[in-house]
Computed example of a mutant assay.
Amino acid sequence: MTSPLVIDNTDKSRFELVVDGETAYADYHVTGDTLYIDYVFAPEALRGTGTAGKLMQGLVDIISNRPQKIVPICGYAAAWLKRHRL
């Protein structure tokens, strides 16, 4: 079984993670070399399963390959980044 894959849906300006047919996402906007995370959402069916954390890890992994820095606007994103970033 493969792990769910976080994708950057640039048409919707959000990172997405589909699990069991449900989509968790992180809305963002970019200004210059900064990616602002505006809002992180997990459907009710995925809450408490660690999906939002997996979404954030995938987002960080993608951005680590780009010349961008991350600035969280969303409270969840800010707390997650504070706990998990080096």
Rank of each mutant, 00 (worst) to 15 (best):
V60H: 02
Y39L: 15
I70D: 08
G21I: 02
I37N: 11
G32Y: 13
K69M: 03
I70A: 09
K82P: 04
S64V: 04
V30N: 06
M56I: 11
D61G: 02
G50C: 10
E22Q: 15
A45P: 04
E22F: 14
T2F: 03
A52W: 03
H29W: 11
Y28P: 10
H84W: 00
A52Q: 06
L46S: 04
K12A: 10
I7T: 11
L46F: 12
I63E: 00
L35Q: 13
L59A: 03
A45C: 09
N9C: 10
Q68K: 14
V6C: 01
E44M: 08
A24I: 10
R66Q: 15
E44R: 14
E16Q: 09
M1N: 05
D8A: 08
R66C: 02
M1H: 05
E16K: 00
G48N: 09
I37W: 12
A78W: 04
V30D: 14
T34W: 05
P72G: 09
E44N: 09
I73Q: 13
V60M: 13
S13V: 10
G32S: 08
T10G: 03
G32N: 04
E44A: 14
V19E: 00
R66A: 04
T23Q: 07
L17Y: 02
M1R: 13
I7N: 07
I73W: 13
Y28K: 07
A42N: 11
V18K: 02
I63S: 10
Y28T: 06
T31C: 06
L81I: 13
V18L: 07
I63T: 08
A78C: 07
L86A: 02
G58F: 00
M1L: 02
G50F: 05
K54F: 06
T10I: 12
N9P: 04
W80Y: 15
H84S: 04
V18M: 09
L5I: 07
D20Y: 07
R85P: 01
F41N: 03
V30H: 09
R66M: 13
E16P: 03
Y76K: 10
A79Y: 13
I70T: 11
L59G: 00
L81E: 01
V40N: 09
A45G: 13
A42V: 08
M1A: 14
Y39H: 15
A77F: 10
G48L: 00
M1E: 08
K54P: 03
H84G: 00
A45N: 15
Y36M: 08
D61V: 00
K54G: 12
Y28N: 10
Y25R: 01
Y25Q: 05
V19P: 05
N9G: 12
R66K: 15
A77S: 13
P67T: 13
A78M: 04
F15P: 05
G58H: 05
S64N: 07
D38S: 11
Y28M: 09
I70S: 08
V6A: 02
N65T: 12
F41G: 09
G21D: 10
A52D: 01
G21H: 12
K82I: 12
A45Y: 14
L59W: 01
A24T: 05
A78P: 11
I70W: 12
D11N: 06
A52P: 03
T51V: 14
